[in-house]
Design a protein around this nucleic acid. Structure first.
Lengths: 241, 241
DNA sequence: CCTTTTAGTGTAAATATTACACTAAATATA
DNA sequence: TATATTTAGTGTAATATTTACACTAAAAGG
């Protein structure tokens, strides 16, 4: 709960700063990428960091994550979910900072990156080839985000967020393989996806060398529930750091 | 990330208050119970709430959760894990308060409750029979905690935290049945538990009417890893609100 | 009409789950 | 001593799921 003291006087308490940090994933050139920002100022000047910043008094935490992400990178209108809250006393050399981390998923083709004047550069990096150690405890946050992504993949339709509006089944299979890090059987994959009934034929075809690709879109059922498709059968949940 | 501004001046930012709230579960009289505190002061004076309070500047978030829990209820030395961070701008009428919620599991027999002078009463309540609406958004926090408990049960050894140091297999089965809300097959349960090899025979027996109960303890492997036992086979994860 | 690519279907083996019947050990008590 | 009671299992058949791999076929380009 909150405060049990007789009278509540905010000035009696020294308060930590509260930030949000966002781990934005995308699939680019057949590899999972994460969005990083190069810092202009102390501390960790010149180091790469996750986009994020201070929360304002009248916005929700998720709103803060969306605002900071757009301000710092230009990325907007994406899927967002809370990851974990990091708050070790010395994780920021300036003062006590508690950071609520979010995961975001986006199809890269839809986004144009923009560098804010608070930073030097904004770029996508393959999670296999990061530019050295990240600022603060952002390596830990990124690792936690990767874990979460892998585990949620199997019982949610999360992966669809990484695809454009319209896509083929083989492209979807490709996403699963990239994130899970293993090859999947083509026939079994088709069956699973078809049985789950989460795809809608757009009627469009993409033509090329061989038989044209059938293009689907993700079917949004009533309520826009996210948890309709389970890659494996069993009951599931959430895993932390 | 954190702050990108040229010079960092904490006073330039109005900062939210940060609290921790703890959802403590136990099994009592064959039912899942949660620990609540009756508030002495405004707001929600006289309402029941989750134990919790403000975080100090030099303690980690988990340390804050442990400290507040002990101060307010006397409960200590228990299993804790972070649940979710709640921060809607108006969830507390006094000021902007962001609360990092934790789940705790405890065997009730080990704990003696103590009322702090900041509250009127401390009690265990069956999650089936709560004393009306809770203070703040604590009904939402509790519901989120219950969801998490149910889902983690199937792929972790979480349930063992609800048992005393030494217990019988049937007592363990009982915990699973209570939390999952369904009856399990005795034979299959024995097999699963035995195969998982997470129990250690203490050599002790508890005698009574029929054949004495064999008493086990939870085997802590090297590293004290928590995720050794999966009730069902498939890979798993985390589900949010 | 041959090759390539997408889009599947069929199926057998292996593995896992579930339900239920059965055995047996150890004790209290009649 | 015999019987009931309780814990502690084993056995097994039916069912369901997963996995691997072979096979078919459609649609297009060359």
């Amino acid at each position: 709960m909150d405060e049990q003291a007789e009278t509540y006087d905010p000035t009696r308490y020294e308060r930590p700063s509260v930030t949000v940090d966002v781990v934005v994933f995308t699939l680019q050139d057949h590899e999972l990428h994460v969005l990083l920002v190069k810092r202009k100022h102390w501390p960790y000047e010149g180091h790469w960091a996750l986009p994020g910043g201070f929360i304002n008094m009248n916005e929700s935490i998720e709103q803060a994550a969306r605002r900071e992400l757009e301000e710092e990178t230009g990325v907007r209108d994406i899927y967002l979910e809370q990851l974990y809250t990091f708050g070790e006393p010395r994780r920021d050399p300036r003062t006590r900072v508690i950071s609520i981390a979010y995961i975001a998923l986006v199809s890269a083709d839809k986004q144009t990156l923009r560098v804010s004047d608070e930073s030097i550069d904004v770029r996508w990096f393959s999670v296999q080839r990061l530019p050295g150690l990240l600022a603060f405890d952002h390596d830990l946050i990124l690792a936690t985000g990767l874990d979460r992504l892998r585990s949620k993949l199997e019982y949610t339709t999360l992966a669809f967020q990484l695809l454009p509006e319209v896509f083929s089944i083989l492209e979807l299979k490709y996403i699963y393989e990239q994130i899970l890090g293993e090859e999947l059987d083509k026939g079994n994959f088709y069956r699973k996806i078809k049985d789950a009934n989460v795809l809608e034929d757009t009627g469009m075809r993409r033509e090329g060398r061989g038989r044209p690709t059938t293009l689907y879109r993700f079917r949004r059922n009533r309520g826009d529930e996210q948890f309709v498709f389970r890659w494996r059968e069993a009951r599931v949940d959430e895993v932390e750091s």
